[in-house]
Amino acid sequence: MITLRKLFSVIGGIIISANILAQSKSEMEIRKLEQAETDAILKGDTVTLFQKLWAPEFIVNNPANLVVTRQEVAGLLRAGKIDYESFERVIEKISIVENTAIVMGREEIQPKGKTDNAGKIVIRRFTNIWVKRNGMWKAVGRQATISAIN
């Protein structure tokens, strides 16, 4: 015979498992979007950034200590001021709170061309913020700080 205590324990376990699965699904989505963003930046693909990844109000507190809009970031991409030989993002933590995902970690880039620190390896700490609206995740904010240049 099942006691109320056992029943509540089973129901609680189901609820916890459902929350973990939902978070895992969202985390997987965010990881894919983070990689898509990295790929688009490497290719200078502003169409993907604007249409699929970045919200209209997307802002960045960039490594040059400037707060810029997505239009300004696109201008920097077109001008060759954001141009990388390589770009690796290592996600250390994704925290999902309701419809907001906060992603934190480190990045290793190798700038080229007209980009500051061209030819060097630049290590940055980053935070990206994604919001889910109408079933779709969009990046709304980003902060990146240089922690080392080799």
Rank of each mutant, 00 (worst) to 15 (best):
T46M: 07
A148M: 12
A55T: 04
I15S: 08
A144D: 11
I102P: 02
R31F: 11
N65F: 14
K43E: 10
I94Q: 08
S17R: 05
K138R: 15
F50T: 14
Q110T: 15
E27F: 02
T100F: 00
I82L: 04
I94P: 04
V140I: 11
I20V: 15
F126G: 02
N62K: 03
I59N: 06
I14R: 02
D116Q: 10
S24C: 01
E98L: 04
A101M: 01
K6I: 03
I91L: 02
L33I: 11
G141R: 12
I94D: 05
E34L: 10
I16D: 10
M28I: 00
I16C: 08
F50C: 07
V103P: 07
T100L: 00
N99M: 00
I146G: 09
A18Y: 13
T100I: 09
L42T: 02
G141E: 07
A40Y: 07
L76D: 13
R124P: 00
G141N: 09
I146T: 15
T115I: 07
G113V: 01
R142G: 13
T38A: 10
V68C: 10
A55Y: 12
M136V: 13
V60R: 03
Q110G: 04
D116Y: 03
E34A: 10
S86M: 05
L21W: 03
T69K: 13
G113H: 05
F50N: 14
M1G: 15
A18H: 05
A40R: 04
P111W: 10
W54E: 03
S9N: 06
G119I: 05
P56Y: 12
K120G: 02
P56W: 11
K120C: 00
G105E: 08
D45H: 11
V122L: 10
A118G: 04
E107N: 14
M28C: 00
S86C: 05
N128C: 06
I82D: 01
G119D: 08
F8P: 00
T3W: 15
I11A: 01
T46F: 09
I2D: 11
G12D: 08
V67H: 01
L77K: 02
I41R: 02
M104V: 12
F87H: 07
F50A: 15
E72T: 08
N65H: 06
I109C: 06
V140H: 06
E72R: 08
K32N: 11
E57S: 13
K25N: 04
G13Y: 03
L66K: 15
V140S: 01
F50D: 15
Q143V: 08
W54C: 10
T38Q: 11
F87L: 12
V131S: 02
G80P: 08
G113F: 10
E107L: 14
T48W: 03
I82A: 07
G105M: 05
D116S: 09
E98Q: 05
T69R: 05
V60G: 00
I16H: 05
E34C: 07
K132N: 01
R78D: 09
A139Y: 14
V60F: 13
S86P: 03
T145A: 13
S9C: 07
R89H: 13
G12M: 05
E27V: 02
P63C: 00
K93R: 15
F8D: 02
E27I: 01
Q35F: 12
E37Q: 14
A74Y: 06
I96T: 14
T38S: 12
Q35H: 12
I20Y: 04
I146R: 02
I149D: 13
L33W: 11
K32T: 06
V67T: 08
A144L: 01
Q71K: 11
A118Q: 09
Q71G: 06
K112E: 12
